[in-house]
């Protein structure tokens, strides 16, 4: 046993002290082409992110042209829904520069920015449903910045389309009928509307909104955070 160990030790020492093994350089074999893909190097137009100033100013307008402090107060509300924190919490996420601390303007979207837009959209749409569709006495049409139409139950697709168009113009700036895509955008959103109505009708949970109000809020969320809303 001892002899085996000694032999192993001597062998190992000889190997360790021997000249290093040399790997001679040689070129790797060429990879065979699987297919050829065209590379487009032509300069492209790209989408511009709506400046946060323009978005915020529009947001204030959708709240009835209120001042930022008033919008914050109204969006927060007193119902404990925590729909809105404070502008201070959102400004950087929205892409505003911070000159005091030398933080530049965000030129591209990021996950936090998109999440912020979503949160802002929910706060806007929920408060707009309360203000435009739900309040008593009824808010005059001229004072409805978002849902400038009467709700209707049940809502047929034909009745939905012109109302949806109002929202589409508000957020995206053009008639829904011109929206690109193989399927009518109004039809797609009517699907969303109908699903929300059906889900709410099934649900036994106590809710702030009627099924159609909740459905309008959902349509509003969809448009207010639509990529076309935030890009131009």
């Amino acid at each position: 046993m001892r002899a085996l160990a000694a032999t192993t030790f001597v062998y190992t020492a000889l190997v360790a002290c021997g000249p290093p093994s040399v790997v001679h350089p040689e070129s790797a074999p060429a990879l065979s082409a699987a297919s050829r893909v065209a590379m487009d190097t032509a300069p492209k137009e790209d989408l511009r992110l709506v400046p946060p100033e323009a978005y915020m100013r529009s947001y204030l307008q959708w709240f009835g042209a209120l001042a930022p402090a008033d919008v914050q107060k109204r969006a927060k509300g007193a119902d404990g829904n925590q729909l809105f924190d404070s502008w201070d919490d959102y400004l950087s996420a929205m892409g505003f520069p911070d000159y005091r601390n030398d933080l530049p303007r965000a030129q591209q979207t990021n996950a936090i920015m998109v999440a912020t837009f979503e949160r802002l959209a929910i706060a806007l749409c929920d408060r707009a449903v309360e203000h435009d569709l739900k309040s008593l006495p009824v808010t005059p049409m001229a004072e409805r910045a978002v849902f400038a139409f009467e709700n209707q139950e049940p809502m047929t697709e034909a009745a939905f389309a012109p109302r949806f168009d109002v929202l589409h113009r508000t957020f995206l700036g053009y008639p829904a009928t011109l929206a690109p895509g193989p399927v009518s955008r109004s039809h797609i959103y009517y699907g969303l509307f109908s699903e929300v109505v059906a889900a709410r009708q099934k649900s036994k949970a106590k809710a702030r909104f009627t099924p159609t109000e909740a459905a309008w809020a959902a349509v509003c969320y969809g448009l207010a955070r639509h990529p076309e809303t935030h890009l131009y």
């Binding site: 511009r48 100033e53 323009a54 529009s58 113009r169 700036g173």
Partner: peptide, 27 residues
């Protein structure tokens, strides 16, 4: 009727010059 491009250009002008989205009345 206006084309989609015209609407989008108008929206861009509004964002760049008025500093906000166009209102429905402006559309």
């Amino acid at each position: 009727p206006r084309t989609l491009e015209e609407y989008r250009q108008f929206r861009a002008l509004s964002i760049d010059i008025l500093g906000r989205f166009p209102t429905r009345a402006e559309i």
